[in-house]
């Protein structure tokens, strides 16, 4: 009886296999606030990150961005996903799912092989793998990954921001291209929709918490060299601002500028004007008293009209004070 209730709680069930897992994590719902550095730092708490970049082409909700993070170890990706999925991040709920569709053939091969090794270890069977040829190319890789999340490589992690569209300064371009040329394009060509498995993942982890935790007993408690890593990231990448944020920022500045120019024309006695005054409209002598009187009248009338227009447009945002407040809050 108990079980029935328990299982109905997870509406559409999903079975998790090694095929669905990946070192690649897709992070959706990242607010477009130029917080990539913070995002990566947050994820790096769970293990060394090999590559990361924004997926500009990936369908995303308004004002959010999608990032792809490749961990060095599957186990790190597993923990990161578990900890970060449905987590609030700068006021937005992150959605984290595995993205095995970004794997190369070799990465898929290694993933399957790692599972083979893990089961062999866990069930205490030193099975001799019948496929010697896999062992060959793998040796160098597995030697490195023998230590969980080798921190020595974290320096290069920080530099591995390889999304070409993200570069905001020429300095960073030169900084990156040298490193990234190898895997620059490979995984960005196709973005197959792969959402079916994502929704229920948290449910799975919820129900199997004790199991997934115990899957890898030799576990990965966040190492003490964490601080060192964060520092490295700081050194490697300046504060990053994605293009969309740049555009938003520019738009906001433009709007702000317009607002101020309007305020400037309204003669407010309490306002302190700083800086040089705009040149006054030259008073033209019409060589005739009656014409001059008419000109002054017209000039005054024009000024009156202009003032009333600017006053209403200034008053508008004040009257609906909620609106600019919301706008400002997004700029935290």
């Amino acid at each position: 009886m108990n079980i029935l209730v328990y299982s109905f709680f997870f509406f559409s069930p999903q079975v998790y296999t090694i095929n669905l897992e990946s070192r690649y994590l897709l992070i959706q719902g990242v607010p477009a606030l130029g917080v990539m550095k913070e995002l990566i730092e947050q994820f790096a708490l769970y293990g060394a990150i090999e590559e990361y970049h924004a997926l500009d082409e990936y369908p995303a909700e308004q004002f959010t961005e999608v990032y792809l993070i490749k961990f060095q170890k599957l186990q790190c990706a597993r923990v990161a996903k578990k900890k970060m999925d449905e987590r609030s991040f700068f006021g937005s709920l992150l959605h984290v799912c595995y993205a095995p569709e970004f794997e190369t053939v070799q990465e898929t091969r290694e993933k399957l092989q790692d599972r083979r090794k893990y089961i062999a270890k866990a069930t205490n069977q030193r099975e001799c793998f019948l496929l010697k040829k896999i062992e060959g190319p793998k040796k160098t890789v597995s030697k490195n990954s023998e230590h969980d999340c080798p921190w020595s490589t974290s320096g290069s992690c920080a530099a591995s921001n390889w999304d070409p569209s993200c570069f905001t300064s020429s300095h960073r371009v030169s900084h990156n291209t040298g490193y990234a040329s190898g895997n620059h394009n490979q995984s960005l060509l196709a973005f197959p929709q792969y959402d079916n498995s994502c929704a229920e993942t948290s449910g799975y982890f919820g129900q199997n918490t004790s199991l997934t935790l115990s899957v890898h007993p030799g576990g990965h408690t966040p190492p003490t060299s964490l601080m060192q890593r964060t520092v490295l990231i700081d050194n490697g990448v300046d504060r990053f601002m994605p293009r969309t944020t740049h555009l938003q920022e520019r738009k906001r500045k433009r709007e702000e500028g317009n607002k101020f120019s309007l305020i400037g024309t309204s003669v407010d006695s309490t306002e302190v004007i700083i800086g040089p005054q705009l040149p006054q409209v030259p008073k033209v002598d019409m060589d005739d008293d009656s014409l001059n009187t008419s000109a002054t009248l017209i000039r005054n009338k024009l000024k009156e009209v202009a003032d009333s227009v600017s006053r209403t447009s200034v008053q508008k945002p004040e009257s609906s004070s909620a609106k600019p407040l919301v706008k400002q809050r997004r700029r935290i």
Partner: peptide, 28 residues
């Protein structure tokens, strides 16, 4: 539960649970 229930949904749920338990060698 799997053997007793007549509901296909319940069967799916329980089978999914069992298959997920099969991921961990501790349960083998």
């Amino acid at each position: 539960e799997f053997q007793v229930t007549d509901s296909p949904e319940a069967k799916e749920q329980v089978l999914a649970n069992l298959a997920n338990f099969a991921y961990d060698p501790k349960n083998y």
